[in-house]
Design a binder for these strands. Structure first.
Length: 885
DNA sequence: ATCTCATCGTAC
DNA sequence: GACGTACGATGAGATA
């Protein structure tokens, strides 16, 4: 397409069309008009674009003829408020709107089209109104109806459309009149007549000159009667092309839409598809970040930091692994938009500089009078601790703030937060260091690039702090931040740095033994199946079990509705006497343990320390629990004997012992405290078996007469309460009928009514405020409670109860960890906290510290809070983890 | 070759 | 549809 095109849209024509065409959504005209506009831009990609509006002022036509459009109804009530929204939308797209008091959109279109054509730009009138056809001129001014898909109706198409020559359109329309605009035409002359007379006499003037030649009486009378009004009609019909408007390319050239504004606008109007179709456009302002590579400048900035008492820092290293990471540089930010990068050990840097710069930075980091802030501070301080640096004083963490504000969110990374909260696209790591096999370590990144990247990170962290810290206070999350999460950061850094020793030889031996067992099981399974197949493939296994062998289908998987082959299914099949499922269960257990633990753990041993350094993640679990990965040390087996053996591979260093303690029934104790239920409270206070006690209560028998089955039922209900278990699940778990399960639960609540009351109160409060708050003030939003979906609502109710209990338990053990760490350091003990497994802490210490550490551990854990019921920690020691049970 | 999703199973 | 929170191994299919 060689010629530039100027599309002019008649706003109201399309607004009304959308309004009447689209039903059942709010702001239908806004939606329809937006869709039309998007399609127009996408399909036609016009070089120039304008949208013409009518104004509410009287037009010159109304002045000439007061009856003009007098028959029009007022604009529909629901359309009125949509007009400003449409204008807002058009502004968002950066499309010029043109309106002129006294004139109609048609006149604006006529004038602009003519002016554009005069400048050699093709004018395209976006309208379906036949009146506009009078404006069409050769290929210079054409019409386009996006709805009918009539593309470019040019002059050549007019005879076919109207049955007259282009220059006769105005006369033709004048004869017809326009009933919609209340303009009288010529009575007694219809479409056929009008065309016939115009063809015969050339024009209206021609017709009047030859009026006596018209023989049809009605037509002739009509023309006679219209003689006085026809000039006015013609004036009204004629679209003006002489308005005081110019077409200049700069004004009408297509501009970049304001994607962020539009996105917010579409979000506000709940136009989901349009929100998705409008990705945010992110700013990328390059700031002038400074490289600090002289002692003099560095000292100046550090003096400023001391003066302010607050700064943001971010280290650059050679690895994400904190043990292996070498320090390459440090970025500092002293205020928004002011950040620096101190290159310490980039390739080719002078060691004298590195040493002196590091000494200066160390001083500031160790200064307890200066508050530091970082994004994910645990990483930075872990690396620095490993290098022997001290990072002291208050350490703020913007990642932590983000997590506390929205624990349901799983992305708290700086790049993501910068986009979400600052509408800013940061320089990403791979943009400076590459990715995949092209990736270089940060010390190889040129200083100017490194400075831009690193200083920006510090700057962005500063900006996030400015936003998140006030929010933290506003949302009353300051307490949990200050008393639990923030002090935990250095504790976790030390735990991760300590790592734990694994007996590699032991696991290797175990692995070999298991391999033999697995091999034998495989053969037995192939034999029973009658063929070899991939046993680990649930798909293949399903075919063997349920198609080839014709075993009864027990259940289907939830997502794909394929055959389920999980443990409960295999157990059911096994109980029916089939040999294969039993073998499969055994096979599954062996392979699970071998691949997930026995073989995996040795590969995680750090070559540098010879220990396994798992990560303890603070920002993952929505309830406030920690999580562990690389490897996950919070799901090491314990329930089966074979699984438990894996724990024997976790050993203390030579001459040291493990000291471990776990909270006894902490979640149920919290339930007792929160509900104040007498049976539970008394049970825990007296130190008796709580499940036995509740069983006695439910079954109405003496505690001493409670059978194992009765205890098992009570235990299931006790645990189920914490998770919000229903009768279906209880029935399944206990192998009883639903009716029986319901009876148990009803009796439970009758005997322990405050447990039910507590649950209801928690849910009611959560529903009222839309979130749940734990004991220490952590919150978790529960949008499920506001759902109209009953299942989602029920889930919200379970989350409310569970988050309160699980979250509070998590806070209690976190506080224990903080106090323990503090005590160990104060008392100069060598003991090290190694693991946290939700209700258990594992330490190692020299043999001679065993007693003092045991006592310290137990007392610290038990005295975190003083509730209606005591917290009990059971402390054990051993020469491996398995022995501490 | 690398990713994402589904299924399964381990812990508390 | 029915019990909360995690992580990870494996297979299978999509994407590059």
């Amino acid at each position: 397409m060689t010629r530039e095109r100027f599309f002019i849209v008649d706003a109201f024509a399309h607004i009304f069309r959308s309004f009447y065409a689209i039903r059942n959504i709010d702001n239908n005209a806004v939606y329809g008009f937006t869709m039309m506009l998007r399609k127009l831009i996408a399909d036609e990609n016009p070089e120039y674009l304008a949208i013409a509006f009518d104004t509410s002022e009287p037009t010159f036509r109304k002045e000439l003829y007061p009856e003009y459009k007098a028959n029009r109804d007022a604009m529909p009530e629901s359309l009125v408020p949509q007009i400003p929204l449409i204008k807002e939308m058009i502004e968002g797209y950066n499309i010029p709107m043109v309106a002129m008091p006294g004139f109609e959109a048609d006149d604006i279109i006529g004038t602009l089209a003519k002016r554009a054509a005069e400048q050699g730009v093709q004018a395209v009138i976006v309208s379906g109104d036949k009146d506009m056809l009078q404006l069409v001129q050769g290929d210079d001014i054409v019409m386009f109806d996006p709805k009918k898909g009539v593309h470019y109706l040019g002059e050549a198409g007019i005879p076919e459309f109207f049955g007259c020559r282009p220059n006769q359109i105005i006369d033709l329309l004048s004869i017809w009149g326009d009933s919609a605009d209340n303009i009288p035409g010529v009575k007694g002359v219809g479409e056929k007549g009008a065309k016939k007379y115009l063809a015969e006499y050339g024009s209206l003037d021609g017709i009047y000159e030859n009026l006596d030649k018209i023989t049809a009486k009605r037509a002739r009378t009509g023309f006679e009667e219209a003689r006085e009004t026809i000039d006015l009609t013609k004036t009204l019909i004629t679209i003006r092309t002489d308005l005081d408007l110019t077409f200049d390319k700069d004004t009408y050239v297509r501009k970049e839409p304001d994607a962020n504004g539009l996105r917010a606008f579409f979000t506000r109007l709940d136009f989901k598809s349009l929100v998705d179709a409008t990705p945010p456009k992110l700013k990328r302002i390059s700031r002038d970040y400074q490289l600090l590579d002289t002692e003099e400048r560095l000292k100046e900035v550090l003096a400023e930091i001391r003066d302010k008492g607050f700064f943001v820092f971010d280290i650059e290293t050679t690895s994400l692994n904190t043990i292996e990471a070498e320090l390459v540089g440090m970025a500092l930010a002293t205020e928004v938009n002011q950040a620096y990068y101190v290159p310490l050990r980039h390739e080719g840097q002078d060691a004298t500089w590195s040493d002196s710069a590091e000494a200066l930075l160390k001083d500031v980091l160790a200064d307890t009078n200066i508050i530091k802030c970082a994004h994910n501070a645990k990483y930075d301080i872990s690396v620095l601790f490993n290098l022997g640096w001290d990072v002291a004083g208050r350490i703020e963490d913007t990642m932590l703030m983000s997590y506390l504000i929205n624990p349901n969110e799983d992305r708290h990374g700086m790049d993501h937060l910068a986009e979400k909260l600052l509408n800013y696209r940061t320089i990403h790591f791979d943009e400076v260091a590459g990715s995949g096999k092209d990736m270089v370590t940060f010390d190889k990144v040129p200083l100017d690039k490194a400075c831009n990247y690193a200083a920006e990170d510090a700057d962005i962290t500063f900006q996030l702090y400015d936003i998140l810290f006030p929010r933290l206070k506003e949302q009353d999350l300051h307490r949990v931040y200050d008393t639990v999460e923030r002090p935990l950061i250095p504790v976790l850094a030390r735990v991760e740095n300590s790592g734990v020793q694994i007996d590699e030889g032991y696991l290797k031996t175990m692995s070999a033994k298991m391999a033999e067992e697995i091999e034998a099981l495989e053969q037995a399974i192939y034999e029973l199946a009658g063929e070899e197949f991939n046993i680990k493939s649930t798909k293949q296994l399903g075919v063997i079990l349920f198609e080839k062998l014709g075993l009864p289908t027990v259940k289907k998987t939830s997502k794909t509705k394929s055959y389920s082959t999980d443990q409960s299914v295999l157990e059911t099949l096994s109980a029916k006497g089939h040999a294969l499922p039993a073998k499969l269960l055994e096979y599954r257990m062996f392979t699970k343990l071998k691949s997930t633990y026995v073989d995996a753990l040795p590969t995680m041993i750090c070559p540098k320390t010879g220990r396994v350094h798992s990560s303890f993640n603070q920002f993952v679990a929505a309830t406030g629990r920690l999580s562990s990965n690389n490897p996950n040390l919070q799901n090491i087996p314990i329930r089966t004997e074979m699984g438990r053996d894996i724990r024997a591979a976790f050993v203390p260093r030579d001459g040291w012992v493990f000291v471990a303690a776990d909270y006894s029934q902490i979640e149920l104790r919290l339930m007792a405290h929160f509900s104040g239920d007498d049976t539970l409270v008394q049970g825990f206070r007296s130190g008796e078996d709580i499940h036995r006690r509740t069983a006695g209560e439910i079954m109405d028998v003496d505690v001493n007469l409670v059978t194992d089955d009765m205890r098992r039922a009570a235990k299931s209900i006790n645990f189920g309460l914490i998770y919000g278990m229903g009768e279906f699940r209880l029935a399944q778990e206990l192998g009883i009928t639903r009716k029986k399960a319901r009876e148990y639960m009803e009796t439970y609540f009758e005997k322990m009514p405050r447990v039910l009351g507590f649950r209801d109160e928690v849910i009611e409060k959560a529903r009222e405020i839309g979130e749940i708050r734990t004991y220490f003030g952590r919150h978790r939003q529960l949008p499920e409670l506001a759902s109209r979906n009953k299942n989602l609502q029920a889930q919200g109710e379970r989350l409310a109860v569970n988050t309160l209990i699980q979250g509070t338990a998590a806070e209690i053990i976190k506080i224990a960890m903080i106090r323990l760490d503090e005590a160990i350091r104060e008392q100069d003990l060598q003991a090290k906290l190694l693991l946290q497994v939700h209700d258990e802490l594992v330490l190692e210490c020299p043999e001679e510290e065993k007693e003092v550490v045991s006592r310290l551990l137990g007392e610290t854990m038990e005295h975190v809070v003083h509730f209606e019921v005591p917290l009990v920690a059971e402390v054990r020691t051993g020469t491996n983890w398995k022995e501490t049970k």
